[in-house]
Design a binder for these strands. Structure first.
Lengths: 198, 198, 198, 198
DNA sequence: CGTTAAACGAGACGGTACGTCAAGTCTTTTC
DNA sequence: GAAAAGACTTGACGTACCGTCTCGTTTAACG
């Protein structure tokens, strides 16, 4: 049995330097050109220190991203103006806007590509980033159901996926122009289908 | 300027052997473990012959997939039973079923990951595979509009994306179980929103 | 049996262009960086045309050199001033001088290196270049024997080698400075040993 | 400036395995067919380990030869029987004999060819192998001068070159048969020229 | 608080694959 | 039918990183 390293003795400084270096190099060169040696060199760290704490390049990048995103986005409850249509439009336009930002675009594409080959990463991504985000949306939808703005017999989690799915599809596959107008149309058609039956 | 090779002199035999080898190795080992050297060895071909005609590993794989899929899926018009709900359920269940097939799943994930870093590939994929498939669906939707099963003021192309988006989202991000039931629900809610207004 | 090409149909133009290109590239880049492809490209000739008529890169270079040297140096009888010492000094100083010329130095080193791995080339070199040169010297020595300037019981061919050997040794191995003074000393000591016995 | 590796960390085992493999392959296949990849494979070593410590194939071979020859030939003082003629005959016959041994012949031709294109190697060869050997000879000649067997006004280093030069010339250029008799004749004529004047 | 075992930086190691270059062979087209 | 053009298989090149493995050097938990 290979002896596991002792987390208590772990150098916080090394960890931070590694994640920072990973983030910087990822932005500069992209995932494909990112190397463990490069991260180690930039971080001023021995390669072994990386291998000691992470199983793969993907895991490092993933941690680096969580480190960056997690700090800002812990609590992202949706706004509630009283009009669910307005609120959904706001959140979906925000999603589109982020996708149009070159840096965020690159990071998200990188991680989306990466999880295709690593189900464990995929699960962690869903649990720690996507899940919370979609839960915030389905929470807002449930609130709308309670005030009678949406049919009450609809699964809010499914509805959230009906909302984000098309945007994600268009972004990832570039099937057409991705803009605020597209986001609005998705919300409009979706709400038509989710409206309470007369 | 590096002189381009003359396509007239290209060896068909080499091309076919390369694409076949790529497909086999991709299924056996996955994209990450796929190497140019491996393809060349399996195909009984010099590495230079690959480099002469393709700019990257991704391009080879892409051609290999088009070669395989394109031959079978030229004409994929949707069925038209007269009931658009039934037909959409059929096509979406078919899509889900293909995603559940391990081989197809791996190939599709590979190529989806690949196009994230190569917009040119992405465009080609849309034009040659995704586009035709989505057009077939939107054609069927337009037919439904003409017989009054769907509201006539809705963009059929957008509707097709509303349909495939959620399925694609769940498959790619593994946000939940992907099965026929999920496909049915997507169709149901979508049609509710697209129904002609009284 | 592989059919031999017909020398009668050989293109003189191609032959000359190849040998010229070889000579030029040899001077520009040296033997190690000389390639068949480079020669073919420079000569505006197909590679096959080179392979058809020469068995190896060394053979081409060799022909190229013979073509260049042979034309100028067919008849190189030594001067005969009546004083064999003066004449030997002249010829040895000339040899040294040529070795100090950078272009000639490179060509000679190239071919000397090459014949180490190719006895057939070595033989041809001796027969067509070195042999005639040394024969000219031994002829002069024999003439000296006839007029009593040298002991008559000495093999003139051996004596020629005693003369050129040390110069060649110092040039090839760089064991010390190679100059006219060195040449003179070699001649002086050699003649002392070859003088007629009282 | 590319960072130089740290000699303290160098693996002795790898170094020895590389030099041994180089020597073996050189004997088996000759210099032209010798490859870095072949050496690495035979030595059970990564190619990078060779490139880390040697700049070229020639340098490896050179080190391999020094490693082999240097160990046996550190001290090669010439015999001193009292008769300089006998001693020179012995050493020159020994030189000829070694040149007639196929393995030694191949090694020496290889390295002689190699130093033509690499003056740095040439200098090292002279300093570490040829130099000591010729010094041993000139030492013996000086001893002969002291006891009056040779003229005292002759440069012993030059004399040594007069001795080895012709043998080397005949061996390298194959201008004639190389045997003990030839060695004897060289010594005889040389001594005639170097004898003390009456 | 000093000891001491661990984590650390550094980097050499055996490997794999890269993308390039040239070798020598083969085929197609031109003169 | 030789020659030009150039695509082909082969194999070595020298480079970049991989993940493993020592090395000395900090450094932080515990005796």
């Amino acid at each position: 049995m290979t002896k596991a390293p002792d987390p208590k003795r772990r150098s916080v400084h090394a960890r931070d330097a590694i994640l920072l270096a990973a983030r910087e190099l990822l932005t500069e060169a992209g995932f494909a050109r990112l190397t463990i040696e490069g991260i180690a060199a930039r971080a001023g760290v021995g390669k072994q220190t990386i291998y000691r704490w992470w199983p793969s390049k993907g895991a490092v990048v993933f941690d680096a991203l969580l480190d960056a995103l997690g700090s800002t986005g812990d609590e992202r409850a949706l706004p509630n103006t009283g009009d669910v249509g307005v609120d959904l439009r706001t959140v979906l336009r925000g999603t589109v806007e982020e996708m149009l930002n070159p840096d965020a675009d690159r990071l998200q594409r990188t991680i989306t590509a990466e999880i295709q080959h690593d189900p464990a990463l995929a699960q962690e991504l869903v649990e720690r980033l996507l899940g919370p985000q979609m839960n915030a949306t389905s929470d807002r939808l449930r609130a709308a159901q309670e005030v009678g703005q949406l049919a009450s017999d609809i699964d809010a989690d499914l509805a959230a996926e009906l909302l984000f799915g098309p945007v994600f599809h268009r972004w990832l596959l570039r099937t057409g122009p991705l803009d605020a107008d597209f986001a609005d149309q998705v919300v409009e058609h979706l709400l038509a289908g989710l409206a309470p039956r007369a």
